[in-house]
Amino acid sequence: MRFLFCIIAFLMIGQAIERPTFEDFVAGYERNKASMFNYEGLPAFVLSENLLAVLKLPNAKLNKYVKYDPFLNLYLVRTDFSLIPTPMGDEEKLTRNDWVGVWDPNKPYIGHIKYLAQNINERDQLDFNTKIGLLGTACCEMMGIALDDNSFIGNRYLKHFMKYNDVYWGDIGVDFALRENKIYVNKIRKNGQFLINDEVISVDGTPVKSLRKLNEKILFADPGSTLYFQVLRDNVDLNISTEVFAKDISMFNLPNTKPKVKPTNFRSNLGLSVNSSLIVTKVDPKSKADLAGFMVGDKILRVNNAIVKDFKNLQTILAGGNDFNILIQRKSSKLPLHNFNDNLLGNINTNGDGNFQFFIRLKK
């Protein structure tokens, strides 16, 4: 018996991967330190040549970013300067014998991946004390972003995170559970095709053996794509096709990061609509502007002898008075007397290019 134990121990030692030294990870830090830095006071990690993952810390936030993902607690930032990304490895291929660490020049953070999360509401786990930083091998492959609670965000999540400008994670409205090494429908939130206790046999023709891989196949699926399930229901095989939609994130009350569209048009309650070039785009029939003589195409130059810079300026002027002398420029073809002798046009001034300038009086 003791001989058998010694043989097994010898084989285990022979197959074990030698623990890398602290100096190995210091060398990894030196090779990859350009991929991690502070961005506006927050830890930032390079994902591509112009994309950063910035970790949100308590009582701190960024003012400019592509999106904030509440599941990962990361901002996605697009930079206008070039970045140096670290090659991404595949954390799913690592075994319990493979060594990983948080690249740090001062203290060793070295160990193994303990557990890969089953769903987005969990975190991948490490079996050693950690700090916020890049998680990688002793050589040069990044495996994810380490947090300070022995957890990390794996590359498979980071690759999906950087794929979309909006927060998007796939969903089919069904939750699954593992029971006796089989995967069953455990809860139905928004899907009329499944029933509770349906046993999942395969997805897209691939046998389902891992709850994590099933959940991540849905999470990482493109919006609007279709997944094909084979399920066993009351000992009867069924084929179900279901469309992937965006996971509901309304409970997070995320801020709108989309830039506000600048107004391109201003409408006065006097019946006058003006665009950003101060050209009249609409005159309401029988309005005060219509009765005063405004026409579509007129360009507003001055109001009460003051140059008008933009339609916000015009809006402020019209809101602050009651009687206005407005200098406009109009094409000669739109003048009521354009077919008559120029001497009949009186004090109307032309600038020599077929456009005439004159005043219109507008009262509230």
Rank of each mutant, 00 (worst) to 15 (best):
G101N: 06
V77Y: 08
K114A: 15
M36V: 14
D98F: 00
S35W: 05
Y68V: 10
D90Y: 13
D98P: 00
Y75Q: 08
P85R: 03
A53N: 03
K114C: 08
L74V: 02
R96V: 09
P87V: 11
V100G: 00
V54R: 00
N73G: 09
V46A: 06
E92D: 14
L62N: 01
V100N: 01
L74T: 01
L72R: 05
Y75V: 04
K67L: 05
K114Q: 15
Y39C: 13
L51V: 08
Y115K: 15
E92S: 15
D98T: 03
M36S: 15
P70T: 05
Y109S: 02
Y109N: 03
E49S: 09
S82D: 07
D104H: 04
A53T: 13
Y109E: 01
D80T: 09
G101F: 02
V66W: 07
K107N: 13
V46L: 12
K67P: 08
L94Q: 04
K67W: 05
L76E: 12
R96A: 12
R96I: 06
N73Q: 11
L74W: 00
Y75E: 06
L42K: 09
P108Q: 09
N59S: 12
L72Y: 04
P70F: 00
Y68C: 06
N97D: 05
V102M: 13
L62D: 11
I110A: 03
S82I: 10
F81N: 05
L55P: 14
F37D: 15
F81G: 05
N73L: 13
V66N: 06
L76G: 06
M88N: 10
L76S: 06
N63A: 07
L47Y: 05
P87W: 06
D90T: 03
D80A: 07
V100Y: 00
E49A: 08
V46K: 05
K56R: 15
L62A: 04
T95K: 14
D80E: 11
T79A: 11
V54H: 01
P105Y: 04
N59Q: 12
K61M: 11
T86K: 02
L83S: 01
S82K: 11
S82C: 07
Y65E: 11
L42N: 15
I84E: 10
G41S: 13
K56V: 13
L94K: 01
E49N: 10
R96L: 13
L47S: 01
Y75N: 08
N63I: 07
Y68P: 03
L116N: 02
